[in-house]
Amino acid sequence: MSISTGPIASRQESSVSRLASSILSSVARRNLRQILLAIVLPVVVIALWQWEGNGGSLFGGVLPTPDRVWHAWKVWAFGASGLSLNPYSGTWLANLLFSAERVGKGFLLAIVVAVPVGLAIGWNRIASGSLDPTVQLLRPIPITAWLPFSIAVFGIRDMGAVFLIALGAFYPIVVNSAQGARDIERNLVRAAMMMGAGRWTILRRVVLPASLPSIFTGLRIGLGIAWTAVIVAEMVAVKSGLGYVLWDAYYVGRMDVVIADMATIGLLGLISDRVILLIEQWVLAWRRLQSFHS
């Protein structure tokens, strides 16, 4: 052979270490500048809010200042439960876990159903013809419109919330999975057929991995909807969780708890999105290299 592989080997190794060091140094640079840049706006808003509200509250006494919200949050999170007059004292973690568990169950249910259905729709003409129209017909119905239906069928129980969450997350996952399977490169499928793979093997070993980037897009959108759905469901259809506390605190005029609750929801949404992103980066390592090289 006239081409030696030696120089190519060392080039490949150095490109891997270059990738690693460039990621590290960019993370370090981001840590300084990016984080500073990111917190300017929230800090300004909170400072203004505090300053404007000093001497009482904002908006004619409706809105508590950040320090009061922070205090309410601490009591809600770390206060003794059951003993004090404050019914929220010490119930933060329990309610957070109620909501997170519902999101987890609903989201998993959505994944388990939506990914296979989506791949089938994108991959098989009969599945597409028989399933896609129904999905498209139901999709415009907002999950809020399903609330009475859900309460009537499942009652004021966990199952209702899980149903709404699963339904809300189902659509973006199914649509993106189908898109991923539809967009698969024709020659990859041909290559697999040429090597003797049957339809089932092709679905599992070619269509599924090729669709993963698009499936993950669906998962991230679906998870956002799952958090919306859990709050809506808990406000109406169950008697626990962050959504329930949100509405309950509003009724008794505890706006400090309402805002602490909102912040908690935002934080959980952010963290769970980052978790999906991390899993995505791990599962799709081959793809990150691809975009880095080209």
């Binding site: 040429m194 090597m195 003797g196 993963l212 081959w286 793809r287």
Partner: peptide, 28 residues
């Protein structure tokens, strides 16, 4: 239908990008 008795080599190789070289070679 296609089959392993006729090995096709494509212009753009059409390797599975998520499999490494070894896994691509033993796929068949």
């Amino acid at each position: 239908r296609p089959g392993p008795d006729r090995g096709v080599v494509f212009q753009e190789a059409a390797l599975f990008p998520w499999l490494n070289v070894w896994q691509n070679v033993i796929f068949g």
